[in-house]
Each structure stands twice: as structure tokens, then as C-alpha cells.
Write a protein that binds this DNA or RNA. Structure first.
Lengths: 211, 211
DNA sequence: ATACGCGATGAAGGCACGTTCACTTTCTTG
DNA sequence: CAAGAAAGTGAACGTGCCTTCATCGCGTAT
């Protein structure tokens, strides 16, 4: 019998060809999903960009959601693989942390498009158009940011905050410092948010360089 | 002629009643939008929760998008108003920064539901279900986090990183430190991402407490 | 050369949902 | 109290889009 039992490590030519084709489709899907949200991206657009028909797309993936998951997963895998690489090259904790931070910058410098997917993978967010925001809301947002920049500038001028970083970057970092804490809180709904506050204060103080 | 010219400062009873009703509808809409994304939230659900018909909803708001904008705008306004309050009470830059951070915690402790809207307003993100993520992707995410926690713990044990904060919180802060920089970069597409890296490194060093 | 099988195709099905509008109910006013 | 205005209603409409499936084209084996 022509029992085509293959070496399980080495998939057949057919199999490899399939994986290659799937990869091309994922490329196209990544491009489309990166441009908008999951809901707004259309299967037809993806099929067209991949130069296959919608039917074929559904032969390769069970559903739009399945396709999206695969795209995000692949992008995330690529990202983390490279981070791990850097981590294993780096010696000592400080160097390792620097490697992680640096690689974030390098990665999105190269694959700028993937940023939306990255956010989706790490936080469960999806992008929406900024234009969804009221112009009033935009204005308030800007006003608040300016206010915070001024405060940081004052602190530095008065020698209370450590110098060495532009005031606007410092301000933006301060403003987004609560976010990771809030995300942690949402993740484990057992903990009380307020118990995290002291730690957050410690972290801002470090950012500002106050003892 | 019964020219009902009103004192422009004091709207008519009708007008005030309308505003009150609009407020109730916004409450309902906030609840629904906070539960899912803009795309997934349905106008019918909102109308039902507000105990009005879909038609009435469309008498009050031009479109679903208009409604969403109003909800976000109102939530954001409430948030910023209170922050400004705290800011004006606080004396000196450090106290002001502390006030801002503290209020983030207080606010979402009280209005936990608004978190999604807050993110939407500040970053232009929308939430998606976590379940959209591959289980593999989840695992990778977790693995990376654990790796980073270990590194932070090592650093603290070796006396390289400053103590005083749980290793997991430190790790999460390190991991999300690049985010504000990336958002700044996306906002002003004129700048080169890599020019921001040195500042990011400075900020991590401060977070870690290395000189 | 012919028959067979497997993947590709895209038009049609079906559904979900935003929006409208003719009709009804409620309120106002003379 | 009646007539007219204003506001409320929800069924119907239109649109967009995911998914399916009968059909087709092409390579392979006999």
C-alpha cells in the first residue's frame, strides 16, 4: 500500500507549500488588520490583497476571528523570539532590561505597522480612529498635557525634579504611569486598586528623581 | 409677539428637562459602551437600557457615532475637572504630580466602568475581548512577563536595582515604559523613533534606581 | 488520453444592525 | 375642552459583510 507515512519532523512538500501559502495570506491579513480594527477590516479586502478568493481564505481559516488570532499570534511570536534572543545575549540584569527596552524601539522602527497588533496582543486593545473624539475632548486632552509639562518644567527649574530629560517626555511618562497599575488591577480582580497606589507613588518619585 | 427670548444664561424649563433626559441616556450609553467596543455595542441595547425607543434616541443624537463622542467627552470632562481641582489644591510641583497620580487611582476605584472610555479618550484605543487571543499567544505573554520579573528580582537581590517595590510591579512598569514613547512617536510622525531611545533608557534607569 | 480528485472560486444566502419615517401619544395653548 | 404642535414609537428598509456551497479548473495517476 502506498502508505505515505512521513517523517513527522519533516512535513511533506504539499504541507510545506501550504504553510508557505498560509504565510502569504497572513502577510496580507496583517496589513489589512493593522490599518483598522477587527470589526472594520473586511474579509474581502484581505482576500483581494492576498490575491485569492474569499472561498479559498475560508479553506485556510475557519473564520475571520481565527484568521485574526493567527495574525496576532504570529506577530507576537516574532517579537518575543527576538526579544528572547537579545535577552540571552545580554549579561546581567541591567543590560537585560536595557535590551528589552531597546528592542521595543528597534522593532517598531522596523515594523511600524505592527504596532496596533502589538497593543492588541499585550493589552487586549484595538485601535479606533482618533477622529472619533470630540474636538472639545481633544482640546481638554491637550490642555491637560500642557499643564503637566509646565509642572514638570517648574519642578526641574526649582531643582526639585532631576534634570536630563525633556519636560514633555517626563510629563507623558508621568501621565501614563498609572496605566500598567490599572491593567494589573483589571487582570486580577481580587486585589484592591488602592493598595497599589503607594507603589505607584514610589515609581513616580523615582521617575522624577526625588529621594 | 410672544417672542420667547430667554435669558441666554438661564435655559428654559424645557431646555433643562431635555438636558436632564439627555444625561440619563448618556448614562445608559456609557454603561453599554463600557462593556464592549463601539462596533459591538448596539443602538437597540442602549435605547432599551435608557428605556426609550430607538427613534427617540435618534431625536436626541444624530448618529451612533455622535452618541459615542458625547459619552466619551462627558466622561473625560468629569475626570479632568476633578484632576484640575486637585491640581489647584496642591502646592508645589511634587505635590501636584502626586495629586494627578493619586486621582487616577481614586477615580477608577470609584468609576471602574469608565476605564475603557478613559483609554479611548486618551489613546484612541478600544477594548476587545481578551478571548480574541490565541492560547499560545497568552502563554507567550505570560512567559515573557515571568522572565522579566525574574530579571528584576535578580537585579534587586544583587543590589543593582533599588529595593522597595515588588518585583512584579517593577517588571510591569518596565515592560510598559516604551508605550508612551511609541504613542508620542505615532502622534508626531515627523520625529525619528530612535532619537527617543536614550530618553527611554534614562527613564528605566530611574525606575530601577540605578545611577 | 481519459478519468479522478482536490483545491479554488465568487455569487448568493442570511444575518445583524444603523437609520428612517409614517403613525400615535402626549403636551400646550387659546 | 379642543385643536394643533411636539415628542415618542418601532416596524420596515437598506446596507455591509461573514459564511457557504455548487461549480469549475487543473494536476495527477491509470
Amino acid at each position: 500500500m502506498s502508505d505515505t507515512v512521513q517523517d513527522p519532523k519533516k512535513p511533506s512538500r504539499k504541507e510545506r507549500e501550504l504553510q508557505f501559502r498560509v504565510g502569504l495570506v497572513l502577510d496580507a491579513a496583517e496589513e489589512v488588520f493593522a490599518e483598522t480594527t477587527f470589526a472594520r477590516a473586511s474579509v474581502e479586502d484581505i482576500a483581494e490583497k492576498a490575491e485569492i478568493s474569499v472561498g479559498t481564505l475560508y479553506n485556510l481559516f475557519r473564520s475571520k476571528e481565527d484568521l485574526y488570532r493567527s495574525v496576532v499570534s504570529r506577530a507576537q511570536e516574532g517579537f518575543f523570539d527576538r526579544v528572547q534572543e537579545r535577552l540571552s545575549e545580554a549579561r546581567g540584569p541591567l543590560e537585560k532590561v536595557h535590551a528589552v527596552v531597546s528592542y521595543h524601539f528597534e522593532h517598531f522602527h522596523r515594523y511600524a505597522r505592527q504596532f496596533r497588533l502589538y497593543v492588541s496582543a499585550t493589552n487586549g486593545f484595538q485601535w479606533e480612529l482618533r477622529s472619533m473624539l470630540d474636538s472639545e475632548a481633544m482640546a481638554r486632552q491637550m490642555q491637560f498635557r500642557t499643564r503637566l509639562i509646565d509642572i514638570c518644567q517648574d519642578g526641574m527649574d526649582q531643582g526639585i525634579f532631576k534634570r536630563g530629560v525633556p519636560a514633555d517626555l517626563l510629563a507623558i511618562n508621568v501621565a501614563s504611569l498609572p496605566h500598567p497599575f490599572l491593567l494589573v488591577w483589571l487582570e486580577r480582580d481580587t486585589i484592591d486598586l488602592m493598595t497599589l497606589l503607594p507603589h505607584a507613588v514610589t515609581m513616580v518619585d523615582r521617575l522624577l528623581g526625588v529621594d
